[in-house]
Design a protein around this nucleic acid. Sequence first.
DNA 1: CAGGCAAACGGACCGCGGTCCAGTTTTCTT
DNA 2: AAGAAAACTGGACCGCGGTCCGTTTGCCTG
Lengths: 220, 220
Amino acid sequence: MSASLPPFPKAGEPSSEPLLLEIASSADEPCLRADAARNRARLLEAAARLVAEHGAAGVTMEAVAAAASVGKGTVFRRFGDRTGLLMALLDHSARQLQAAFLGGPPPLGPGAPPVERLHAFGRAVLRQSSEQLELQLAAQPEPARRFSSPPLRALSGHVTLLLRQAVPDADCVLLAQTLIGYLDPALIHHLTKECGMPLERLEAGWSDLVARVTRTEPPR
Amino acid sequence: MSASLPPFPKAGEPSSEPLLLEIASSADEPCLRADAARNRARLLEAAARLVAEHGAAGVTMEAVAAAASVGKGTVFRRFGDRTGLLMALLDHSARQLQAAFLGGPPPLGPGAPPVERLHAFGRAVLRQSSEQLELQLAAQPEPARRFSSPPLRALSGHVTLLLRQAVPDADCVLLAQTLIGYLDPALIHHLTKECGMPLERLEAGWSDLVARVTRTEPPR
DNA sequence: CAGGCAAACGGACCGCGGTCCAGTTTTCTT
DNA sequence: AAGAAAACTGGACCGCGGTCCGTTTGCCTG
């Protein structure tokens, strides 16, 4: 296991759901030593370059280490494993998106009615994922941990909160996971790249889904 | 790549969606040579034993080969890759389930109204996945191909058909993928093993989801 | 400025998934 | 029955992700 990287105190899992989501683990980097910080930057830059040049598949841990003139062990110490490195590469845009729906302008940010925000949320995620698709796919952790990654937790937490406002008496956690599932990069890839659907259709599908899920009671 | 195993003509992908799903690739094994068939059986048996003894993680290709007194190359020739081997291990119950909803007694099989069948379908899949969970997780292909595996195609195809009957004017393919997403082994694992939810809650969640998704028009 | 120590480094090392191909076995043909 | 083509076999081989541990380096304290 890659557990117990000394410098990452794991942020101590705030026991129960905090009612307001903090800006996701912004206290992530516990003051690296100077050389460590420098190497971290070099590694990220090297990795980004490799992605650009040879695609995500070309991002070999050894290659990254070499390209950054750094030992292989260093890469693992810093990022834990390959997934960690790739996630670090996506971290920037992830935080950006998060900031947008936590504190940005409506309809994505607070201020709009929850259902509106859900619609906007889906569009935003779909757009962002469909760029970056290759990286998003490559960064997927092994199946057993797929839903435990901090960024994903943040997304599903947010959706849960919105759902609680929109359909208070439903099992919003489960509903949220369902919605999040629709935004899974692997699904997006399947539908757009393999089935050839245009992104607009996925967006329409999201809107329809949100509408159906947030309908309060059967017409009957 | 592991493509081009001479003996597997790839079954030629029946171009468009067949209106009636055949019993999923039942013409899979194009008459193996005698010794090959024998080795195949030995390998599956050995693999099953290893799963039972050391868990899915203990199923090393080399270990399986050794346990079956067979060369490593043989394993790969037969099953393509690790995922293929694991899927072969699950094949039996997959076909069983498929037979049940294609031709078994209602409410799972034909005869019941489509929404009824959807409810039963979810319960059946949830139950089956929650046993076998470990194997199901381990058998998961790399993200990019997750939705292309034949068994999964069969499931989502079936759901699509049922949805077309229940909500004819919706984008049933997308809706079906959403529902299938709820039944993803990785999600089941996350919710039951990591969040500690009882299976009953997931079943209730499924019913709620099906109800919401198949509601025809908003109450307004 | 010395010196001590935690943190960071780097590369040898390991195990596993996957490939390859020379040699063997089976099946088909005549 | 014999011989050749096709199919199968096994294990050496490769690359990569991940671990380990002896060595080096930056930082803080006196």
